[in-house]
Amino acid sequence: MAALWMVSQWGMAQSVVYFGNDIGMSSISNDKVQRVFTGKETLWKNGKTVVICLPGTKSPKAQEVFTKVYNKSVKEVQKFWLSLVFQGRAKSPVFFDTEQEMVDYVKRTPGAIGVITADKKSIVPSNLLISVNN
């Protein structure tokens, strides 16, 4: 029964929107997104340092976003970033308790890229939205 519920939740997972500030591009490929959000790319083409913004692990939307971005559970994402940061191979993302905090942070941080569920798209200024191509 729990399994059925989980499948249902995954199936109902909403799509996400990415938005960024001064990252030198308005659209980005899916592969690029994966590389950026897994810490494999730390600089944008315009020379700005990549600052990854993610929902807080206790945020109600965290699981949905992490599923879309990493296809991992919250625990797995935590362990993933713990390992990278511990070994000094990547800079830690910034986690936010609310979407609005994340949007505000991205607005004032060049090079920052955030991701939220699509239902909150309206709070993102259109000039920050980034389209993702397959």
């Binding site: 692990t57 935590q78 970033w81 713990l82 940061v85 511990f86 000094g88 830690s92």
Partner: peptide
């Protein structure tokens, strides 16, 4: 530091410790 990092999503703190 690990516990705080996990609890607060504060990985920069772990970086400082390392």
């Amino acid at each position: 530091s690990v516990e705080l990092s996990l609890e607060r999503d504060d990985f920069p703190g772990l970086t400082k410790t390392m």
